[in-house]
Design a protein around this nucleic acid. Structure first.
Length: 772
DNA sequence: CAGTGAGCGAGCTTCCGCTTGACTT
């Protein structure tokens, strides 16, 4: 039997290492953390120094049993979890959960999965770093205290089932505050003057594209300058050339991979992680959850070889990058191809494209800088003090640009820089066309998933393994939604001067169009404003950074973990208590105006199932009327007119098969009600204007779809049916569904078969299902 | 999926960070 058991965190890693180490070693995986605080209550004993109550979650019992069996057979157990705070804690929990004997247990770490690195690690075992484990424990306990004490405040003061936490609440805050900035943004305009010139004595197709050095606040000033130019002479007064350099970006971390895959490939953050996981499991790339930009020496040597072969020696410049992120723990390498020789891989479309991106980024990071030459031509105006400026940029040596160039989030409004026609000082220029164009300042852009990750990383909030889950949590809780925003038309002036002819035009541009951006919902806004007001310390953008400093001190043995928690907890808890007693229920209520019919107040506010409008007061004897808002409407922006419109529902739009069809907006959007059946309206249907015919069409098409679902019906018992569902065939009785045993052909089921299946299912304990 | 918004009350919700399959009716 194998003498050694090695435990790592990831099964893919275990497989690779087992191959390297040979048959003296069995390598198993812990699948991440193996113990955690119990989910059902706080599981922290506050009186006893915040002692955590750990348990093995049910889905980890099998893993633990398996590891224990292997540990008992082994002479030595090697704990090779990641070398960071969480990894150290996993090793400690493994000792506890597997009841390992200290004398036969060793802690080892390695950063590269090579024979040499692993054997070196085995030669140099160490003990568990208790201080580091304590730091993790402090992190875990703090997050539990915050999450499990603040969330219930929201249940009471806003809505049940809501959540708050050190990470998610700050993510929501970023989005709500960005929306505020956009709402309060007042665009300002100024005039930029562009000029096209030909060069005296040179062919007329050589055009020098320039921009005036000054910008004007008003149209009059811009026109004034153009008028001066009518009789002006233009002369090149200087030609300046400056060499410059561009360096490649470092290889990918999780966060930069998510950003670039979003910008260059249009992947969502979760899509990127899904595909990266597949590439990792196939052995094509190194581990995809990392905050490190370091490459192994092996990778550097291999990059040198690949670049030399493809582009030649002078394109090589291997280098090691250092991380800028303070929160980085650097337990892994950067994300790179495992074999840089493979420029392409087998796989589906997504895998190929993501791999190619990683390959290019890695290779480019080890290539020479690009040499550029910037040229600035200054042109004088004989009748004015301002100058026209032409800028050019030529690539003298492309270096890494040959392979890869990082994208930015800002749209490229800057004029395309390229080569300029050759001009010299003293050259006379001929004016072809000058134009003054009104330009508006832009509000800051809404966050995309990827730009939110970037911001969170800058703030030190969240970890590579949690960026994707954070994005989905704040959407699942309906604090934030991904949406498009239609652009609006904006008019702007252009004044064109050709010859002596000055022409003014009013043109129209689309502005403000945004796709797949993160918008706060009403509930997100109300929760955020409440938390910012009453839990400002936790919502502080520096809260995580500050506690991280303390975690570091704990890790260095300079501070006791439970003393740190003690200091945090009592004022925090006091704040929870006082917020509970001193605040009222938050509904984000906004008075829109009065109902012309009754004179009663109309409000917009949060209801149990989303945003609603209300006529009258809840305290009135006559209960108020309510109506749900349409998609895209919000408390902040809805007008009195739009609110009144909503009360026109429910409305009867005609009859079909001798019964009325009623249209209304419900929890899941607009619907038609007919013979007590419900039919959702299509995306493009408007409940206020939908026609009789269209409604009937919807009803009939839904009936047809229902029919297609039915595999079998029984004349003997109409309550039992065999239906086709998302996961295959199943049996339905009234509102309950039942699984069909494997190997049964659903088309052949008889009524008796179905009854038997239902009966046997009733005997089994029903696993607890989520409501809704 | 389920189509409300009163009022009562029981029972439930919730965090972050480390990992993947199992399984949905």
């Amino acid at each position: 039997m194998a003498k050694n058991l090695v435990i790592v965190e990831s099964p893919a890693k275990a497989k690779t290492i087992e191959k390297i180490l040979g048959d003296e070693f069995v390598v198993k995986s812990s699948f991440g953390h193996v113990r955690d605080l119990s989910k059902k209550d706080l599981s922290i004993n506050i009186e006893k120094g915040f002692a955590p109550n750990y348990e093995i979650p049910s889905d980890k019992k099998k893993t633990i049993a398996e590891l224990r069996k292997n540990a008992q057979k082994a002479e030595t157990v090697w704990l090779a979890t990641d070398e960071d705070r969480e990894g150290e804690a996993i090793s400690w929990h493994l000792i506890q959960a597997l009841e390992l004997d200290e004398r036969t247990t060793r802690r080892i770490v390695f950063h590269e999965i090579t024979k040499q690195a692993i054997l070196e690690a085995v030669e140099n075992p160490r003990n568990i770093d208790r201080h580091l484990v304590d730091a993790q424990q402090a992190r875990r306990v703090l997050d539990r205290l915050v999450g499990y004490e603040v969330s219930p405040v929201l249940w009471k003061k806003v809505k049940p089932s809501l959540s708050a936490g050190r990470v998610q609440s700050v993510a929501v805050r970023l989005i709500v505050e960005r929306e505020d900035e956009i709402k309060n943004f007042k665009p300002e305009s100024n005039y930029r003057i562009g000029g096209k010139f030909t060069i005296a004595g040179k062919p007329e197709n050589l055009i020098l594209d320039t921009e005036l050095s000054a910008r004007f606040k008003t149209k009059d000033e811009a026109v004034g300058l153009l008028n001066k130019c009518i009789s002006a002479n233009f002369e090149v007064v200087s030609v300046e050339k400056k060499p410059s350099k561009k360096s490649p970006a470092p290889p990918f971390t999780t966060s930069t991979l998510q950003q670039e895959a979003s910008r260059k490939l249009g992947f969502s953050v979760s899509k990127t992680m899904l595909v990266a996981q597949q590439l990792y499991e196939s052995g094509y790339i190194t581990y995809m959850r990392t905050d490190s930009v370091t490459l192994s020496n092996l990778a550097l040597a291999s990059a040198r070889k690949v670049i030399t072969a493809a582009f030649g020696e002078k394109y090589v410049k291997t280098r090691q990058f250092t991380t800028k992120s303070k929160s980085a723990q650097e337990a892994h390498e950067a994300i790179r191809p495992t074999f840089l020789e493979n420029q392409e891989i087998e796989g589906d479309h997504f895998q190929k494209r993501l791999y190619e991106l990683i390959w290019k980024r890695t290779i480019a990071s080890q290539m020479a800088d690009a040499d550029l030459e910037k040229t600035i031509v200054t042109i004088s105006i004989s009748t004015a003090d301002e100058n026209f400026i032409a800028r050019g940029e030529v690539i003298k040596f492309d270096g890494f640009l040959r392979v890869y160039m990082e994208s930015t989030d800002e749209d490229d409004t800057e004029t395309q820089k390229g080569m300029l026609p050759k001009v010299e000082k003293g050259d006379e220029l001929n004016r072809i066309e000058l134009n003054a164009m009104q330009k508006f300042t832009q509000s800051p852009p809404r966050y995309t998933e990827a730009s939110l990750v970037k911001k969170l990383e800058e703030l030190g909030i969240g970890r590579p393994s949690t960026y994707a889950p954070i994005i989905s949590t704040i959407q699942k809780r309906e604090y934030v939604e991904k949406a498009d925003k239609q652009g609006i038309d904006r008019r702007f002036y252009v004044i064109v001067l050709t010859g002596a002819d000055l022409k003014e035009e009013l043109r129209t541009e689309k502005t403000g169009y945004e796709k797949n951006k993160l918008f706060p919902t009403d509930i997100g806004t109300v929760v955020n404003n409440f938390l910012v007001q009453y839990f400002s310390n936790i919502l502080d953008y520096n809260f995580t950074a500050n506690v991280e400093v303390e975690f570091d001190e704990i890790a260095q043995g300079k501070k006791e973990w439970n003393e740190m928690i003690n200091k945090f907890y009592w004022p925090f808890h006091q704040n929870v208590e006082s917020t509970l007693t001193q605040t009222r229920k938050q509904s984000g209520e906004r008075l829109l105006g009065q109902d012309p019919a009754t004179g009663k107040n109309i409000y917009a506010k949060i209801g149990r199932y989303g945003s609603i409008v209300q006529i009258g007061e809840t305290s009135d004897e006559d209960k108020p009327r309510f109506a749900g808002m349409k998609k895209g409407q919000s408390i902040d922006t809805i007008t009195l007119e739009q609110a009144l419109e909503l009360f026109k529902l429910p409305r009867t739009i005609g009859s079909f098969e001798d019964e009325d069809m009623l249209v209304a907006i419900g929890r899941f959007g607009p619907y038609i009600r007919h013979k007590n059946q419900f039919y959702s309206l299509g995306k493009t249907d408007d409940p206020f204007s939908i026609t009789n015919d269209r409604a009937i069409e919807i009803i009939i098409s839904k009936r047809n779809k229902e029919k297609e679902k039915i595999i079998r019906e029984f004349p003997g018992d109409s309550s039992i049916k065999v239906l086709k569902g998302r996961f295959g065939a199943y049996i339905a009785q009234n509102k309950l569904n039942f699984k069909i045993p494997k190997g049964t052909v659903p088309e052949n089921l008889t009524l008796d078969d179905c009854r038997k299946i239902i009966e046997s299912a009733a005997l089994k304990p029903v696993s607890k299902k989520k409501k809704k």
